[in-house]
Protein backbone atom coordinates (compact mmCIF):
# COMPACT_ATOMS: atom_id res chain seq x y z
CA UNK A 1 0.00 0.00 0.00
CA UNK A 2 1.10 3.53 -0.59
CA UNK A 3 2.31 5.83 2.08
CA UNK A 4 -0.86 7.28 3.43
CA UNK A 5 -1.93 7.54 6.97
CA UNK A 6 -5.05 8.80 8.46
CA UNK A 7 -5.58 11.72 10.73
CA UNK A 8 -8.83 12.60 12.34
CA UNK A 9 -10.09 16.13 12.39
CA UNK A 10 -8.93 18.34 15.18
CA UNK A 11 -12.24 20.05 15.36
CA UNK A 12 -14.08 16.80 14.93
CA UNK A 13 -12.69 15.25 18.03
CA UNK A 14 -10.43 17.82 19.66
CA UNK A 15 -13.11 19.63 21.64
CA UNK A 16 -14.58 18.32 24.79
CA UNK A 17 -18.26 19.12 24.88
CA UNK A 18 -19.73 21.17 27.70
CA UNK A 19 -23.25 20.24 28.66
CA UNK A 20 -26.04 22.48 29.91
CA UNK A 21 -28.95 21.15 31.88
CA UNK A 22 -32.45 22.58 31.71
CA UNK A 23 -35.83 21.48 33.00
CA UNK A 24 -38.35 20.44 30.38
CA UNK A 25 -41.79 19.89 31.84
CA UNK A 26 -40.21 19.17 35.18
CA UNK A 27 -37.57 16.76 33.92
CA UNK A 28 -33.88 17.61 33.75
CA UNK A 29 -32.35 17.32 30.27
CA UNK A 30 -28.69 17.81 29.39
CA UNK A 31 -27.61 18.87 25.93
CA UNK A 32 -24.35 20.21 24.48
CA UNK A 33 -23.78 23.91 25.04
CA UNK A 34 -25.12 26.02 22.20
CA UNK A 35 -28.06 23.70 21.60
CA UNK A 36 -31.60 25.04 21.53
CA UNK A 37 -34.62 24.40 23.69
CA UNK A 38 -35.99 22.39 20.77
CA UNK A 39 -32.90 20.19 20.91
CA UNK A 40 -33.60 19.65 24.58
CA UNK A 41 -37.24 18.83 23.84
CA UNK A 42 -36.13 16.29 21.25
CA UNK A 43 -33.72 14.79 23.72
CA UNK A 44 -36.45 14.61 26.34
CA UNK A 45 -38.81 13.01 23.85
CA UNK A 46 -41.17 15.98 24.02
CA UNK A 47 -42.94 16.28 20.73
CA UNK A 48 -42.98 19.90 19.53
CA UNK A 49 -44.64 21.32 16.43
CA UNK A 50 -42.40 23.23 14.01
CA UNK A 51 -43.03 24.83 10.66
CA UNK A 52 -40.31 27.32 9.79
CA UNK A 53 -37.57 25.29 11.41
CA UNK A 54 -35.39 22.86 9.47
CA UNK A 55 -32.22 21.21 10.61
CA UNK A 56 -30.36 22.32 7.49
CA UNK A 57 -31.35 25.99 7.72
CA UNK A 58 -30.63 28.81 10.16
CA UNK A 59 -33.67 29.26 12.42
CA UNK A 60 -35.71 32.32 11.49
CA UNK A 61 -38.28 31.79 14.24
CA UNK A 62 -41.17 33.38 12.39
CA UNK A 63 -44.01 30.88 12.50
CA UNK A 64 -44.16 30.78 16.30
CA UNK A 65 -45.85 27.40 16.41
CA UNK A 66 -42.99 25.99 18.48
CA UNK A 67 -43.25 28.48 21.34
CA UNK A 68 -42.72 27.35 24.91
CA UNK A 69 -42.98 29.00 28.29
CA UNK A 70 -39.70 29.85 29.96
CA UNK A 71 -39.73 30.83 33.61
CA UNK A 72 -39.06 34.55 34.11
CA UNK A 73 -39.61 35.39 30.48
CA UNK A 74 -42.40 37.90 29.88
CA UNK A 75 -43.39 36.38 26.58
CA UNK A 76 -43.27 32.86 25.22
CA UNK A 77 -40.08 31.98 23.41
CA UNK A 78 -39.51 30.12 20.15
CA UNK A 79 -37.92 26.82 21.11
CA UNK A 80 -36.37 26.36 17.67
CA UNK A 81 -33.98 29.28 17.98
CA UNK A 82 -33.62 29.98 21.67
CA UNK A 83 -30.34 28.69 22.99
CA UNK A 84 -30.75 26.65 26.14
CA UNK A 85 -29.15 28.23 29.20
CA UNK A 86 -28.13 26.37 32.30
CA UNK A 87 -30.99 26.14 34.76
CA UNK A 88 -33.76 27.25 32.38
CA UNK A 89 -37.19 26.03 33.39
CA UNK A 90 -39.34 25.25 30.36
CA UNK A 91 -43.02 24.33 30.07
CA UNK A 92 -44.12 22.94 26.74
CA UNK A 93 -47.72 22.10 27.47
CA UNK A 94 -49.03 24.88 29.69
CA UNK A 95 -52.32 26.55 28.90
CA UNK A 96 -50.45 29.58 27.57
CA UNK A 97 -48.38 27.45 25.24
CA UNK A 98 -51.36 25.45 24.02
CA UNK A 99 -53.31 28.65 23.44
CA UNK A 100 -50.63 30.31 21.34
CA UNK A 101 -49.98 27.21 19.27
CA UNK A 102 -53.68 26.79 18.65
CA UNK A 103 -54.07 30.40 17.59
CA UNK A 104 -51.10 30.24 15.22
CA UNK A 105 -52.64 27.21 13.55
CA UNK A 106 -56.02 28.92 13.30
CA UNK A 107 -54.41 32.05 11.86
CA UNK A 108 -52.63 30.04 9.20
CA UNK A 109 -55.59 27.85 8.44
CA UNK A 110 -57.80 30.88 7.83
CA UNK A 111 -55.33 32.56 5.49
CA UNK A 112 -53.53 29.79 3.62
CA UNK A 113 -54.45 26.59 1.82
CA UNK A 114 -52.95 24.00 4.14
CA UNK A 115 -54.47 21.01 2.37
CA UNK A 116 -51.07 19.72 1.30
CA UNK A 117 -49.17 20.57 4.45
CA UNK A 118 -49.24 16.92 5.23
CA UNK A 119 -45.62 16.12 5.96
CA UNK A 120 -44.70 15.72 9.61
CA UNK A 121 -44.01 19.09 11.14
CA UNK A 122 -42.42 18.31 14.42
CA UNK A 123 -39.10 17.55 16.00
CA UNK A 124 -39.29 13.79 15.80
CA UNK A 125 -39.02 11.69 12.68
CA UNK A 126 -42.38 10.63 11.38
CA UNK A 127 -44.02 12.84 13.97
CA UNK A 128 -47.33 14.59 13.86
CA UNK A 129 -48.36 16.82 11.00
CA UNK A 130 -50.16 20.10 11.19
CA UNK A 131 -53.62 18.54 11.16
CA UNK A 132 -52.67 16.37 14.11
CA UNK A 133 -51.48 19.42 15.98
CA UNK A 134 -54.65 21.31 15.12
CA UNK A 135 -56.65 18.47 16.62
CA UNK A 136 -54.37 18.30 19.63
CA UNK A 137 -54.93 21.96 20.45
CA UNK A 138 -58.56 22.10 19.39
CA UNK A 139 -58.06 24.69 16.67
CA UNK A 140 -61.33 26.10 15.32
CA UNK A 141 -60.99 28.12 12.17
CA UNK A 142 -64.67 28.75 11.76
CA UNK A 143 -64.91 31.68 14.11
CA UNK A 144 -63.24 34.32 11.95
CA UNK A 145 -66.27 35.60 10.12
CA UNK A 146 -67.61 34.70 6.73
CA UNK A 147 -64.69 35.76 4.58
CA UNK A 148 -61.38 36.26 6.32
CA UNK A 149 -58.72 37.64 4.03
CA UNK A 150 -56.54 34.96 2.42
CA UNK A 151 -53.36 34.85 0.38
CA UNK A 152 -55.51 34.69 -2.75
CA UNK A 153 -52.85 33.74 -5.27
CA UNK A 154 -52.89 31.93 -8.61
CA UNK A 155 -50.60 28.99 -9.30
CA UNK A 156 -47.50 30.06 -11.19
CA UNK A 157 -46.50 27.50 -13.81
CA UNK A 158 -43.61 29.01 -15.71
CA UNK A 159 -41.47 26.07 -16.67
CA UNK A 160 -41.37 22.29 -16.70
CA UNK A 161 -39.43 21.77 -13.49
CA UNK A 162 -41.45 23.15 -10.62
CA UNK A 163 -44.51 25.22 -9.85
CA UNK A 164 -45.25 27.88 -7.26
CA UNK A 165 -48.62 28.05 -5.58
CA UNK A 166 -48.39 30.91 -3.12
CA UNK A 167 -51.95 30.35 -2.03
CA UNK A 168 -50.34 27.63 0.07
CA UNK A 169 -47.47 29.75 1.33
CA UNK A 170 -47.15 30.31 5.07
CA UNK A 171 -44.14 32.63 4.61
CA UNK A 172 -41.84 30.39 6.57
CA UNK A 173 -38.82 31.89 4.75
CA UNK A 174 -37.34 28.45 4.18
CA UNK A 175 -37.20 28.76 0.41
CA UNK A 176 -35.56 32.16 0.70
CA UNK A 177 -32.94 30.78 3.02
CA UNK A 178 -32.27 27.76 0.83
CA UNK A 179 -31.94 29.98 -2.22
CA UNK A 180 -29.79 32.40 -0.25
CA UNK A 181 -27.13 32.33 2.43
CA UNK A 182 -27.97 28.93 3.83
CA UNK A 183 -27.21 27.01 0.69
CA UNK A 184 -27.54 28.10 -2.87
CA UNK A 185 -26.43 31.76 -2.71
CA UNK A 186 -28.41 32.51 -5.85
CA UNK A 187 -30.91 34.82 -4.17
CA UNK A 188 -33.46 34.48 -6.94
CA UNK A 189 -36.32 34.92 -4.50
CA UNK A 190 -36.87 37.08 -1.46
CA UNK A 191 -39.69 38.29 0.69
CA UNK A 192 -41.28 41.36 -0.79
CA UNK A 193 -43.98 43.69 0.44
CA UNK A 194 -44.97 44.01 4.08
CA UNK A 195 -47.46 42.69 6.57
CA UNK A 196 -50.20 40.50 5.19
CA UNK A 197 -49.16 41.64 1.72
CA UNK A 198 -45.73 40.05 2.09
CA UNK A 199 -45.01 37.48 -0.62
CA UNK A 200 -42.14 35.36 -1.79
CA UNK A 201 -41.15 36.93 -5.06
CA UNK A 202 -38.50 37.52 -7.67
CA UNK A 203 -37.63 41.13 -8.41
CA UNK A 204 -40.75 42.83 -9.75
CA UNK A 205 -42.28 39.36 -9.80
CA UNK A 206 -40.56 38.54 -13.10
CA UNK A 207 -41.12 34.98 -14.20
CA UNK A 208 -38.77 32.36 -12.87
CA UNK A 209 -37.05 31.68 -16.18
CA UNK A 210 -36.27 35.40 -16.44
CA UNK A 211 -34.99 35.56 -12.89
CA UNK A 212 -31.69 34.47 -11.41
CA UNK A 213 -33.12 31.03 -10.65
CA UNK A 214 -30.79 28.18 -11.59
CA UNK A 215 -33.33 25.45 -10.85
CA UNK A 216 -31.51 23.70 -8.09
CA UNK A 217 -34.89 22.94 -6.55
CA UNK A 218 -33.53 23.51 -3.07
CA UNK A 219 -36.44 25.82 -2.32
CA UNK A 220 -38.86 23.11 -3.34
CA UNK A 221 -37.16 20.57 -1.13
CA UNK A 222 -37.52 22.69 2.02
CA UNK A 223 -41.06 23.97 1.45
CA UNK A 224 -43.30 22.50 4.15
CA UNK A 225 -46.63 23.33 2.51
CA UNK A 226 -46.19 22.14 -1.06
CA UNK A 227 -46.51 25.74 -2.18
CA UNK A 228 -43.43 24.84 -4.17
CA UNK A 229 -43.88 21.57 -5.97
CA UNK A 230 -41.96 19.59 -8.52
CA UNK A 231 -43.84 19.65 -11.77
CA UNK A 232 -43.84 15.87 -11.82
CA UNK A 233 -45.68 15.82 -8.50
CA UNK A 234 -47.99 18.62 -9.54
CA UNK A 235 -48.97 16.83 -12.74
CA UNK A 236 -49.59 13.56 -10.94
CA UNK A 237 -51.69 15.34 -8.34
CA UNK A 238 -53.68 17.08 -11.05
CA UNK A 239 -54.26 13.69 -12.63
CA UNK A 240 -55.29 12.35 -9.24
CA UNK A 241 -52.48 9.89 -9.42
CA UNK A 242 -50.11 10.99 -6.68
CA UNK A 243 -49.88 8.00 -4.34
CA UNK A 244 -47.31 8.91 -1.78
CA UNK A 245 -48.03 5.96 0.47
CA UNK A 246 -47.04 3.57 -2.31
CA UNK A 247 -43.81 5.32 -3.16
CA UNK A 248 -40.44 3.85 -2.32
CA UNK A 249 -37.46 6.00 -1.42
CA UNK A 250 -34.01 4.73 -2.33
CA UNK A 251 -30.80 6.40 -1.37
CA UNK A 252 -28.02 6.54 -3.94
CA UNK A 253 -25.28 8.85 -5.21
CA UNK A 254 -25.58 11.35 -8.03
CA UNK A 255 -23.54 10.55 -11.10
CA UNK A 256 -23.08 14.03 -12.53
CA UNK A 257 -19.87 15.03 -10.80
CA UNK A 258 -17.35 13.77 -8.30
CA UNK A 259 -18.71 15.51 -5.24
CA UNK A 260 -20.74 12.53 -4.08
CA UNK A 261 -24.14 14.05 -3.41
CA UNK A 262 -26.61 11.64 -1.90
CA UNK A 263 -29.90 11.35 -3.68
CA UNK A 264 -33.19 9.94 -2.50
CA UNK A 265 -35.10 8.62 -5.46
CA UNK A 266 -38.84 8.66 -4.88
CA UNK A 267 -40.33 5.99 -7.07
CA UNK A 268 -43.93 5.29 -7.93
CA UNK A 269 -44.87 2.62 -10.50
CA UNK A 270 -41.20 1.89 -11.18
CA UNK A 271 -40.79 5.51 -12.23
CA UNK A 272 -38.85 8.24 -10.50
CA UNK A 273 -41.30 10.96 -9.48
CA UNK A 274 -39.01 13.24 -7.54
CA UNK A 275 -35.50 13.51 -6.15
CA UNK A 276 -34.50 14.80 -2.74
CA UNK A 277 -31.39 14.58 -0.62
CA UNK A 278 -31.10 13.70 3.07
CA UNK A 279 -30.82 16.77 5.30
CA UNK A 280 -28.44 15.06 7.65
CA UNK A 281 -25.82 14.07 5.12
CA UNK A 282 -22.53 15.92 5.46
CA UNK A 283 -22.03 16.38 1.73
CA UNK A 284 -25.33 17.91 0.69
CA UNK A 285 -27.20 18.86 3.85
CA UNK A 286 -30.23 18.17 1.72
CA UNK A 287 -29.26 20.48 -1.14
CA UNK A 288 -28.60 19.57 -4.76
CA UNK A 289 -27.95 21.23 -8.09
CA UNK A 290 -30.11 21.19 -11.19
CA UNK A 291 -28.43 18.07 -12.54
CA UNK A 292 -28.93 15.95 -9.46
CA UNK A 293 -32.41 17.29 -8.87
CA UNK A 294 -33.80 17.14 -12.39
CA UNK A 295 -31.23 15.37 -14.53
CA UNK A 296 -32.66 11.92 -13.86
CA UNK A 297 -35.26 12.02 -16.54
CA UNK A 298 -33.20 9.92 -18.92
CA UNK A 299 -33.54 6.80 -16.79
CA UNK A 300 -37.31 6.86 -17.04
CA UNK A 301 -38.72 3.91 -18.90
CA UNK A 302 -41.28 6.24 -20.42
CA UNK A 303 -38.57 8.34 -21.90
CA UNK A 304 -36.75 6.74 -24.78
CA UNK A 305 -33.02 6.73 -24.39
CA UNK A 306 -32.22 8.62 -27.49
CA UNK A 307 -29.00 7.97 -29.31
CA UNK A 308 -26.71 10.95 -29.02
Amino acid sequence: MTAVESTTAKSANGMTETLVTIQVDGRPVSIPEGGTILDACSKAGVSTPTLCYAENLTPVNVCRVCVVEVENSRTLVPSCSRVAEEGMVVQTDSERVRHSRKMVIEFLDTSVDLSQTTAPTSNEAGGRNLADWAAEYGADSSRYGPAPQTMDEEVKIQDNLYIRDYDKCVLCYKCVEACGDDAQHTFAIAVSGRGFGARISTEFDVSLPDSACVYCGNCVAVCPTNALQFKTEFDLREANNWREEEQSVTRTVCSYCGVGCNLELHVQDDTIVKVTSPNDHSVTSGHLCIKGRFGWQYVQPTIQRKPS
Binding site: V62, S111, Y144, L171, G195, F196
Partner: peptide, 13 residues
Protein backbone atom coordinates in the same frame (compact mmCIF):
# COMPACT_ATOMS: atom_id res chain seq x y z
CA UNK B 1 -43.64 43.78 9.09
CA UNK B 2 -45.36 40.51 8.30
CA UNK B 3 -42.61 38.33 9.61
CA UNK B 4 -44.34 36.43 12.39
CA UNK B 5 -47.68 34.72 12.13
CA UNK B 6 -49.36 36.06 15.31
CA UNK B 7 -48.92 39.68 14.25
CA UNK B 8 -49.14 39.31 10.46
CA UNK B 9 -52.45 37.51 10.62
CA UNK B 10 -53.63 38.71 14.03
CA UNK B 11 -53.52 42.36 13.03
CA UNK B 12 -55.65 41.61 9.98
CA UNK B 13 -58.13 39.51 11.89
Amino acid sequence: CGQCVPCRVGAVR
